[in-house]
């Protein structure tokens, strides 16, 4: 079943060239998709269309059978977005308050909010820090808090925009673990990243973008070999030995 359907989507700023140009894309429920491309290729703009943060002038975006523009609240509940910079996404004065922000906006009663927040914090391993102010958290913990804030709204699709940027190795591992767990629970995962190495072994499908267009779309291990053509670093772990030596000589 297609949970996301995008047809003929073009997003253009007035007088500028298209940021997204005639995008057609379908995503099946439960897929793990990586969207890669050089800076300015349109990955973040594409993701913002899924959540209704941007509405394109041309084309249509459907999430779970409903046009995003017709019901923004529903779209935002279905599609959880985790932004590149966790610090800008955390709005609560404490860890608990931040995770409660979404459920409160959805109008959940206070007792339910408390229950949902505690369960979600437990899930991401931050329950012990629930009374802490977010600024004392490490980079990995902040990213996990951002994930918890989204999970508390019970989305079916989770969109990660450059989730590994500015993270140390333990931080990357923490986010990878969360992603894998969410995927195994049946969530549809979309990840925009430059660093394909971090998603090797997890992703089912890879979409390469260039100048607002989808230039390659297919199974991860087939498409990944085209990565360098479109300005994305090819992970060492998928290079053959010969390719790797040629790359080193180059």
């Amino acid at each position: 079943m297609n949970i996301i359907e995008i047809s003929n989507l073009t997003h253009q700023l007035i007088g500028g060239k298209p940021i997204l140009n005639n995008i057609n894309l379908t995503v099946e429920e439960g897929e793990f998709i990586v969207v890669a491309g050089a800076n300015g290729s349109g990955k973040s703009t594409l993701f913002k269309q899924l959540n209704g943060l941007l509405i394109a002038g041309k084309g249509q975006v459907k999430v779970d059978g409903v046009f995003v523009a017709d019901d923004l609240k529903r779209a935002r509940q279905k599609v959880g977005m985790i932004f590149q910079e966790a610090d800008s996404q955390i709005v609560g004065e404490t860890v608990f308050d931040d995770v409660a922000f979404g459920p409160e906006n959805l109008g959940l009663p206070a007792e339910d909010v408390g229950r949902v927040v505690n369960r979600t914090l437990d899930l991401v391993g931050l329950l012990d820090l629930k009374e802490s102010p977010p600024h004392i958290l490490s980079g990995g913990e902040k990213r996990r808090l951002a994930i918890a804030g989204v999970l508390a709204m019970a989305p079916r699709i989770i969109v990660f925009d450059e989730p590994f940027s500015n993270l140390d190795y333990p931080g990357i591992q923490q986010v990878q673990t969360q992603m894998a767990a969410l995927h195994s629970e049946g969530h549809t995962i979309l990840v925009a990243t430059h660093n394909l190495e971090t998603v090797v072994g997890m992703a089912d499908r890879l979409i390469l973008m260039q100048e607002g267009e989808i230039v390659k779309d297919g199974p991860f291990y087939e498409v990944v070999h085209f990565a360098e053509e479109f300005g994305v670093y090819l992970p060492q772990s998928v290079r053959s030995r010969g390719e790797f030596q040629a790359w080193l000589k180059r």
């Binding site: 935002r76 932004f83 996404q89 906006n105």
Partner: peptide, 12 residues
Amino acid sequence: RLADAMESRCFD
């Protein structure tokens, strides 16, 4: 970015 994040979490 904060405004985007709040909007994406159904801020009202």
